[in-house]
Write a protein that binds this DNA or RNA. Structure first.
Lengths: 196, 196
DNA sequence: TACATGTCCTAACAGTTGTTAGTTTTGTTT
DNA sequence: AAACAAAACTAACAACTGTTAGGACATGTA
């Protein structure tokens, strides 16, 4: 049947995507060529096509993998019966941890999605809009229940998500601040700013 | 002497940079070709070289123009003798307004700087690091003077700047939220989160 | 052993990239 | 009208893009 793969539990396709992700993050989707990817995989460019269908398929795989993880986590949280503030903290912490643990993928999903071809582009943006809308609804409940100060939910969501995606810049830096300090302080800032 | 320029007070070089900025923002630096730029200017690609030296010169012009504006505004603020919190609010509002009024340029300076060639790249990153350091110092003073809650200055700066740069996503959207609401609420969130 | 399959290779394609050379047009100044 | 310079044009360059075709080899199955 399927050939045993070179490393661990990863298929060659997964290896390609992983290597490509690193390059997409470093140079951008457009500037990372199939020949670049092939070189880091240790193969000729044409050989990649035995495992993937196109360059943009790699981008799709990355963007939708991440989108799905966020959506399914949100569904878990929505089902919970904690306080609204606690829900928001859980979501914020999840975003921060994703940024810490799956940096390359999340970064690409954040910054390179516009190179998705249609209809994937529209699909991705719809999922994203819907996700943010649902976050906004949670904040709306927090205000109604008097747990949070009055703030435009749309603006709060924008602020939170953008702030977290800025962890990208911490990842690129010399990291004189530890991941724990980063998470603790950012959560503090973003949650205290919401509290009534 | 110099030929009268086609429009208003702009030189042709400035027109080229303006049109290029729009394309760089829409498609990314790499994906926007000289022929694309030429078309929106209404000229052949080769003709652009009568006014600029290279594609990356356009990027340099944009990135350093914006960097200089931020730095010189910060110097003004540093010279002032308001409260630390007031200083931070002034800086935050300035960043938000730049994002509202010079969206294309600021976006490029935020997202496309990595395509700068050396030594401009290092230069740009040094300026940026130094700018953030100085913002961190202001926050440090705020904590010392007991105006602000205890928070890692580095993390606070990261949070503030990233949050504001997320206004990019508002710019791209249908803008059901007004610019005024956006500014007011984001300032509120970011300042209240700092206050003791 | 023979067959089938998966994966690699080389070579090539058609198109695009930033940029240069050389020439012609354009508008202003003498 | 003649001269000059700025700025446009056409044509071309070498390099690079994603991708396909066709063949070589090696492995797993019958």
């Amino acid at each position: 049947m399927a050939r045993i793969q070179s490393k661990k539990n990863s298929t060659k396709k997964e290896i390609i995507i992983e290597k490509a992700a690193k390059l997409f993050r470093e140079k951008g989707f457009g500037a990372a060529s199939m020949r670049d990817i092939a070189e880091t995989v240790g193969v000729e460019a044409a050989s990649l096509y035995n495992h993937i269908q196109s360059k943009s398929e790699i981008l799709q795989a990355i963007c939708f993998k991440i989108a799905n993880e966020f959506i399914s986590h949100l569904e878990d949280v929505e089902r919970n019966t904690e306080s609204i503030l606690k829900k928001m903290e859980t979501i914020i912490r999840f975003h921060i941890r994703m940024m810490l643990e799956q940096y390359e993928y999340v970064y690409i999903s954040d910054h390179e999605w516009r190179h998705l071809p249609e209809p994937y582009l529209s699909n991705f943006l719809n999922q994203r809009r819907s996700y943010r809308k649902r976050l906004g609804d949670i904040i709306d409940q927090g205000i109604t229940k008097n747990e949070m100060k009055e703030i435009e939910p749309y603006v709060a969501v924008l602020t939170i998500l953008s702030a977290i995606s800025g962890i990208e810049s911490w990842q690129r830096s010399r990291k004189s601040t530890s991941a724990e300090t980063l998470e603790a302080n950012m959560v503090k800032y973003l949650i205290e700013g919401l509290k009534k």
